[in-house]
Amino acid sequence: MALSVGCTARPGKSRSNRTGSWRVFRPVFKHDKCTKCGICALVCPEGCVEQSEDEFYEANYEFCKGCGLCSDECPAEDIEMEQEEK
């Protein structure tokens, strides 16, 4: 693709960088004790925790770096970190 004038870009381009490949531990949203409070989504530095139609939350593993903040901050302790199998 030809360069933009002056090194500019329009939104959406960062999504081509799939940061999920960085992950060593994976958050598993168990939806067991979840109260759907949404703290996991709020604290995620990636903004990759999304609410699905059933109002439960899930991490988008394309981008989740596996930092574990959602798991640590979950008041219901309903997100478990599991080692990625590579």
């Binding site: 940061t19 903004g47 930092c67 903040l69």
Partner: peptide, 18 residues
């Protein structure tokens, strides 16, 4: 603030940006 940025895992400033 979109996914795919290159902040370290657990980055405080990335949370701030959002």
């Amino acid at each position: 603030f979109d996914c795919g940025h290159r902040a370290c895992g657990g980055c405080g400033p990335a949370i701030a940006a959002r």
